[in-house]
Design a protein around this nucleic acid. Sequence first.
DNA 1: TTTAGCACTTGAAATGGTTGAGTGCTAACT
DNA 2: AGTTAGCACTCAACCATTTCAAGTGCTAAA
Lengths: 359, 359
Amino acid sequence: MGSEKSGSPGELSERKKQILKAIIEAHIELGEPVGSKYLTSNKHIACSSATIRNEMAELESMGYLEQPHTSAGRVPSEAGYRLYVDSLIDSYRLTEREIEELRTNLRKKQAELDSILDTAIRLASSLTDYTALAAKPRKVRVTVTHFEIIRTDERSMILVMLIGGIVKTRRIRSRVPVSDEASARLEMLLNGKLTGLTAAEITMPLMMEMEREMGADEYLVEPVVKGICETISAFDGGELRFDGIDRLLSYPEVYGGERLREMLTMFERKQDLLDVFSESEMQTGDDESVKIYIGRENLVKTMDNSTLVYKPIKRDGILVGAIGVIGPTRMNYSRVIAMIDHLSSGVSNLIEEGDERSD
Amino acid sequence: MGSEKSGSPGELSERKKQILKAIIEAHIELGEPVGSKYLTSNKHIACSSATIRNEMAELESMGYLEQPHTSAGRVPSEAGYRLYVDSLIDSYRLTEREIEELRTNLRKKQAELDSILDTAIRLASSLTDYTALAAKPRKVRVTVTHFEIIRTDERSMILVMLIGGIVKTRRIRSRVPVSDEASARLEMLLNGKLTGLTAAEITMPLMMEMEREMGADEYLVEPVVKGICETISAFDGGELRFDGIDRLLSYPEVYGGERLREMLTMFERKQDLLDVFSESEMQTGDDESVKIYIGRENLVKTMDNSTLVYKPIKRDGILVGAIGVIGPTRMNYSRVIAMIDHLSSGVSNLIEEGDERSD
DNA sequence: TTTAGCACTTGAAATGGTTGAGTGCTAACT
DNA sequence: AGTTAGCACTCAACCATTTCAAGTGCTAAA
């Protein structure tokens, strides 16, 4: 047996490449193992089925193809897909219509990051026909940069916090009326003492000091600070949202039975997937192109037969999220890649420029 | 054939009730059609299998039971379940442990409605083992009650809107520096002109008037007002969130194959389900107890074999949402009902009392 | 080096018989 | 009249067997 398990693409003759590419594309299209005869008749390859069989046998021993059972056609292996996306793939040109659809749909929603992401995954899912997801990675150091208190009536107010460019609010109610003077002082205190601190750095002594400075209105401090800590903690957990989960069912060969359950469970737990994105945060230095994880390449075990395609989203140069799709290994790579690329860039631009439509 | 399709429970002899109840509970427990022999041996019923067969035949002709095929046991019909939950069911006592779990978990999260709901559905799903969902019903008349502008730096600010007790924010950026005076005037204008108006009532003339009053800073008006309209519009759409979708797969008899897909699709589309909740908003006058929709009783077609159990959530007497679970018709009604009842009340109390931990 | 032909393998689908749970009905019993 | 035992009947589920067709690997010829 040829023991050259993972050969570099250079080893492959032109014809082998052509055949491998044809097999992968046929399999993407049909979802079934593809046999030698199919290739000769449907893809235009200039040799007979017997020759193709020989080549396929070699490709298999090199690890690019697999055979479900003796009398079935061949199926691309993960290595095969990897080779395909790395060097065989034709880059897909989005049609004018598709670009237009991306642009107008994205433009419509000029809002906070969250709702932009929602629109984006909806788009991604409906355009690619796979399950789409967006992640906000877990942050390492979450701090409030600015506090502001808004009075609504004499015993309730709203605390507005600016956390890394995102606005979070929290309602504060008190049983007794609170003077304007007291809330103003509280606001000042918060801005003076708590900005720039992570949840862990907000200590008891600090809180007691604040209570001292609030004098008669010290009763406000504890619930407010507690709320702030909760908000910060909730924020750094990262977040993950989905669209088109029902589309998983379009690929019963992959997501049938128990596998589907594992998949859904993973979507519910979210943590594993978030880890994947966080990991990418590390290697975000190298480049910022579309990333592709095929099968068990780099991922959680439950994603054996799936591919994750995603691209980071940046604001002012720093990573604020990612958007991608998840689907069967035999997904339409070229189209998906082009789509995610555009979409992510679109979102990046959108949040970069903000709402400055003031011309 | 006895043509009394839907008899009132009064028609039923004590023994018929007892048998029906036993069948339903056995079927809930086992998930399989239950036969006459099983009842005599496992549930203590004081007569022989033959007698039970006779009774079952009658119950079937009355429409309370169904037979999948000739040589199978009986399965409760929707009418049977309905009768069961209406008059046969034993009310379930939550254990101390369960109550404790509800309370502590719910208490932990003292935050805005959204995150309370998230916690609640997570709880509901994990405690009942069914898919849980929470809805914020579509509002008829959404208006902003209060505007507030927060300056972050000289060319960006945050617009805070109070919409029906919920806080929404929106970032505003401008290419040119904005004076404090200008933003203060804008805030005043918004509060003066736009509070109490729905999106539809914000007209062009109104906007032009505002531009006039802003003088040199009129360029701020258009993007801001546009953003406000979007926010209001987005708000009245209602919202629906889930937890434990993976649990659908625990009941393959119901959610296997095509049905599962329909179910997921419905979860994605959300609209149908929201309609159900909105409908309940209408009839919310009659009472505010736990509501139960069994099978095709009242619902969307895709929910034929499912039951929806939910209870509205109120703040200050008005409906702000609902929480419930969705599961197979053969769900453990007594337990689920008790759970949802408690949970919904818990949430209601929590948002009622707010953060007033100032003692 | 390529190709045609053929024997071989093997999963999927079709067939057919067996099994067992559960029923409905009738006749005996209280 | 209501209840029960007994029995024939039905029908899905299961298992073993057969058939079928797709696709291969190999050999021999071009």
